[in-house]
Design a protein around this nucleic acid. Structure first.
Lengths: 243, 243
DNA sequence: CGCCTCATTGATCGTTGTCAAGCCGGGTGG
DNA sequence: CCACCCGGCTTGACAACGATCAATGAGGCG
């Protein structure tokens, strides 16, 4: 690579990150500030993904993890009875693929549910970077632990709640996460995934989801128009979900 | 500490580990082989815990993680509707407390469900040791990721299965884990926790668990006498749980 | 326009939760 | 030693939530 090309690459990185919605809270720009040129090889920034694009597939070796910068990624796997189960939705700022670290194989597919953008991080080089910089290593540890904790929390509030509350809770959580990444969100937000995926995430049939959505709209706790939604009465919604 | 006392401590560690059932696969003796004397301060080995003993409580700061060397530890928290939920059972070789790493607070109680034994690992010192030794750091990372993966797997096979299959699957899994840590297990094994805890783990009422246990015994898939159990027909059991 | 997938709505059935009563074993105190 | 109690466990009757089956509507795309 000529020095002119290297220079160009470094410029690209700066440019690409400057336009990124995440750049204020982005761990890449925070944790690797001075070494932008050195990170060109580790991080491939802001790949555009049309909906339906596979980021990786089940049972393939872990080569990269991904930081979502826009849109939404779902991870899915099979249940014991052969149905699809959506493991989680990853929004801006979330790290996709860390569930593969323990055995080096991705346990699930990762698929964009809407027009999305990710930064790809070479895992091997990230690990060697962690070996050199302990604070980066503990940051990755905290990320993985955070992922585990999120799974635990999901399971705890899913348990025992009826479908009605689970659905409402999903929308409250989604709204919180969307506003966290994009503070100038209006009163309505766009649903970045299909209802089928939500049903598979909440572990209920599409029929049950549909019925409960209708009920929530009737009760004035939720508004749904095509692919946009709003939560007119957040406080009442939270009391219903018992938080 | 006088050199005589240090010598004694080192002797104690060796002695205590030599008698441990885990010592062949123990990560402490494997990963910290040459530095036994240096590890005396980090690891407090083989504390005995009578049933009901709290290892730590919810919302307390993370000071130590624990490696189970005998018995069984349950972790529990509250569901959204205020009921108890058993998060998991930790048997010999399992690491308890890693779900607290992300925010430094234990999200759940950890309680011995039977006579147990743990090695206590000072978390701060473990982290600084990880900073010095990257391969230890990546080992801890893999442990956390493994924990996350196990949670994912739990959720995936819990999803969609009826109580009947979930119960059977629990006993298959339990038997596998018990034999893994103690290869000379007879044809029956001891249940290291109460049925109430199993019900709270499998997210069903004690009544449902009891009914399904009775059904499994009637079908010849499970044998239960007081606190011992056996799986007479593993292959049929596996086919029923669709593995 | 026809095809296809997703989404909705209705009718019915089954598993599980709920409420209630009774059983068993261990521990305590008279 | 026995009576008593208490928590854990079991069993039964019933109701309810959600799954299943089925039909229809809505939107995207060739």
């Amino acid at each position: 690579m000529s020095s002119a090309t290297a220079q160009l690459a470094a410029m690209d990185v700066v440019d690409v990150c400057a336009n990124c919605k995440q750049n204020r809270d982005c761990f890449l720009s925070q944790r690797m500030p001075a070494e932008t040129s050195g990170c060109v090889g580790i991080v491939q920034r802001r790949q555009a993904l049309p909906p339906g694009t596979y980021l990786f597939r089940r049972n393939t070796p872990l080569r990269s993890i991904y930081l979502v910068s826009a849109g939404s990624i779902k991870t899915q796997r099979d249940t014991a009875d052969g149905e699809l189960l959506v493991n989680g939705f990853y929004l801006g700022g979330d790290l996709v693929g860390i569930d593969a670290i323990s055995d080096g194989l991705h346990p699930c597919d990762a698929i964009a549910t809407t027009d999305s953008e990710v930064c790809r991080i070479d895992f091997t080089r990230l690990m060697s970077e962690c070996a050199r910089r302990p604070e980066l290593g503990s940051w990755v540890m905290a990320q993985i632990s955070h992922y585990a904790k999120r799974r635990d929390d999901d399971l705890a509030w899913t348990a025992g709640l009826h479908a009605h509350s689970r659905v409402l809770r999903f929308f409250l959580d989604l709204h919180d996460r969307l506003t966290a990444q994009n503070d100038d969100l209006g009163d309505t937000a766009q649903l970045p995934m299909r209802k089928q995926d939500i049903a598979r995430y909440l572990q209920m049939t599409p029929e049950t989801l549909s019925r409960n959505l209708a009920a929530l709209c009737r009760d004035g706790l939720l508004e749904l128009h095509s692919d946009r939604f709003a939560l007119p009465d957040r406080s009442r919604a939270r009391s219903v979900t018992q938080i």
